[in-house]
Design a protein around this nucleic acid. Structure first.
Lengths: 219, 219
DNA sequence: AAAACCGTGTAACTTTTGTTACTGAATAAA
DNA sequence: TTTATTCAGTAACAAAAGTTACACGGTTTT
């Protein structure tokens, strides 16, 4: 959908860094479109070439690493409003295929920049690169944290942290999800997750209901 | 040690991308020094501020994530000749303290750029940013791989891959290391590593000797 | 040479995680 | 309302990883 006023406002509100440079903003508005995606939409497939660069305005997306062959995957990090998919950008620049999968987690509005134009923008405006650079940095640190917790913590701690992050990002205390879904995100099995959730409930960190998990205030 | 000819040659040989821009190269030569570090030197401490940006000319360095409190750590990736410590660069830009530790693994020659001057270089020359950007990208992918193997593989596979990477980077088939050292790198315990090494030996992948491990050609 | 130390081997046990197999409750569909 | 279907619970077992404890062969130090 082409609505320049909407795109312009979206950049002003969610990408103030890009808005500080009027020429850059004008170019972005000119070449991009705004799209809505429903939860569950795969916006980037592992192994695929990059056709567009997305800027998330509202909603939430998740980025996964898939295991080759087997159908397993791990959640790497989230894409929040005001962020883009850094892997798309760098993969595009290096003309590789994507190493990760990105899935819309909550209905989202996204400013879509066609790949070739995004490359031109990157060449023309250092500000754009600064933006990407910062984002890249942020995600790098998030990966470090995943490695840290995978190496030094047990699954129960990882699980609790996952639940709290989900609750925080979705701004609710009750998560509508299934044990199976959590198992997919964490690269584990449903039975293990059920067992650990039960333990967390007994310890008072959460309350379990059918298809829902409530996070308590216990620290 | 200040030796402009040496620095100039080092940049030509190991950082050809930076050498393509004569002005950038000239500035780098002007502000930097060449240093030798012995194996074991900690060139970047976790939690410390960044004072210099290193460019590795020869030798090898390792980058670790340390567990807060406990003394445990995990190997994240290596810094090879022709590379710099990306975390130094981004940490410097954001004026944060380092999230990682970097240790010289094999006696190394390093071109040292003082932090403030490095910031000036980054502002002045887009080429420098391109270089960092590519490096960042590379390390990002290496982190992805660590997460992948931590999530989907067992320790024996991780161990074998570690041994092979070490052998490749150090260009020898016999690694002079101890089981304890490997345990530190992989964030495990000596006994577990001993057990798994014995298993790998029985399977024909390695030969064990006192203080040394020989990697065989078995695939 | 005796003592101390380091690196390794390994048994026995515990904890954590994964797997198999089956049950029943809750919800949606026919 | 009956029938599927999805989701959750859980026991029992297996495998992987961590822990404790100790033995032993080399070095190195005294």
């Amino acid at each position: 959908m082409k609505n320049n006023r909407l795109i312009s406002e979206a950049i002003d509100s969610y990408f103030p860094r890009l808005a500080t440079m009027p020429a850059l903003k004008a170019d972005l508005v000119k070449i991009s479109q705004i799209h809505r995606f429903e939860a569950g939409t795969v916006i980037l497939r592992q192994g695929a070439y990059i056709k567009v660069i997305p800027l998330l305005i509202s909603g939430l997306a998740k980025v996964f690493k898939e295991e080759p062959e087997e159908g397993n995957e791990v959640l790497l990090y989230y894409i929040k409003p005001g962020e883009s998919c850094v892997m798309s950008v760098t993969t595009l620049i290096r003309n590789q295929t994507s190493q990760v999968k990105a899935v819309i987690e909550e209905d989202s509005e996204v400013v879509i920049i066609p790949a070739e134009q995004a490359l031109a923008i990157a060449k023309k405006y250092p500000k754009w690169n600064e933006f990407i650079y910062d984002l890249f940095n942020l995600k790098f640190e998030e990966l470090l944290h995943v490695i840290e917790i995978l190496t030094f913590s047990k699954k129960d701690k990882r699980l609790l942290e996952y639940l709290r992050t989900e609750a925080k990002l979705k701004e609710r205390k009750v998560l509508n999800t299934t044990h199976q879904q959590i198992a997919y995100d964490l690269g584990s099995s449903r039975e293990v997750i059920s067992r650990l959730l039960k333990k967390l409930e007994q310890e008072g960190y959460i309350h379990l209901r059918q298809g829902a998990i409530e996070i308590t205030d216990k620290i």
